[in-house]
């Protein structure tokens, strides 16, 4: 129990540091939101009035403190440019991003596990070589390139899937899924390739472990050794990496959304940064970082459940 409490304290401390970083980076960047809000023809007096109105003339630390205090109460401020509460803005767009990230996560898990096991233990040389080649390919292509290739292949040449846009998952689940396939694949492929390589390397190491000899000496079959001995032993590292790659997925999602013309929080962030809409930009950035950290914490807790050695340490 103490272990989880300590972990939680650590996460909270990290979030605090991140919030300060996010806040100061944006506010210290050149450019003044007051000039944007006041419009291109505003006089210096008007700009000063807007600045006072937005509270931008207060000292840096008091601004940060005020924002943090509000944020802790669930008030992320009001968008300078759109005039709506930031929580509403995010709420409208979060669903789309979540669908994409979850779909990509599932694809990443399934593809990487299958490819990893084949790479480490596949007995058919041709299949192994093919998987090896494909992972290398996927590894070297970043999401924005894979997006374009996928659009070209499936939307332009074969025209089996839409090149962009989205549908409501509640009103039209089938349609929503059709819109999800390409962006989720584009997002998942490079990450899955990294994970597959990692899993394969670790499984090869596991297969060299002494306890594999014990299993053979018991009369266990090769298949049993792969699935019941080597894979569970390699799962640990895999889960950690899954948590870390989740952060990559979120980052990648913001880019992929733009390419596939999905109205997710990625677009919101891009607009907010270009127009110096501090409250919105801060909130979106903090949210994505928090999600990434949370994913890592969850993966660690999963490990603490599956690995008795970590569990023993956690129980102390």
């Amino acid at each position: 129990m103490a272990y989880y409490l300590r972990r939680l304290l650590g996460v909270l401390a990290t979030l605090l540091v991140v919030s300060l970083l996010v806040f100061s980076l944006l506010q210290l960047a050149p450019g003044d939101p007051a000039t944007v809000v006041a419009g291109p023809d505003a006089t210096p007096e008007q700009i000063a009035a807007v600045r006072a109105n937005l509270g931008l003339d207060a000292p840096f630390l008091s601004r940060y403190g005020g924002w943090l205090g509000d944020a802790l109460r669930g008030d992320l401020g009001t968008s300078y440019t759109l005039g709506q509460p930031v929580t509403d803005l995010i709420g409208q767009r979060l669903g789309s991003t979540l669908q994409l990230v979850i779909a990509a996560m599932l694809l990443m898990g399934v593809l990487s596990a299958a490819a990893g096991v084949v790479l480490a233990t596949g007995r058919n040389g041709a299949v192994r070589a093919a998987v090896d080649y494909l992972t290398t390919l996927a590894l070297s292509v970043p999401p924005f390139v894979s997006s374009i290739i996928l659009i070209f292949a499936f939307a332009v040449i074969w025209q089996v899937l839409p090149s962009g846009g989205e549908a409501s998952i509640t009103a039209d689940p089938g349609g929503a899924l059709r819109f999800l396939v390409l962006p989720a694949l584009a997002l998942a492929l490079p990450n899955a390739a990294v994970l597959a390589r990692l899993l394969a390397t670790d499984m090869r190491r596991s297969l060299q472990e002494e306890y594999v000899l014990t299993a053979r000496a018991k009369g266990a079959s090769r298949r049993r050794i792969v699935w019941r001995h080597a894979l569970p032993a390699s799962l640990n590292l895999y889960i950690v990496q899954l948590g870390i790659n989740f952060g990559n997925l979120i980052g990648g999602a913001l880019v992929v959304e733009a390419i596939f013309a999905r109205a997710g929080i990625g677009g919101l962030l891009v607009d907010a940064v270009t127009t110096r809409d501090y409250p919105t930009a801060q909130a979106v950035l903090l949210l994505t970082v928090a999600a990434a950290i949370l994913a890592q914490m969850v993966s660690e807790m999963v490990i603490a459940r599956v690995d008795p050695r970590v569990k023993a340490r956690a129980a102390r």
Binding site: E210, Y211, L213, T214, A217, H229
Partner: peptide, 14 residues
């Protein structure tokens, strides 16, 4: 049946 030298390494840790 066979028994090896270092039981920690030869038992599955998980």
């Amino acid at each position: 049946g066979i028994v090896f030298q270092d039981p920690l390494a030869y038992l599955h840790p998980l």
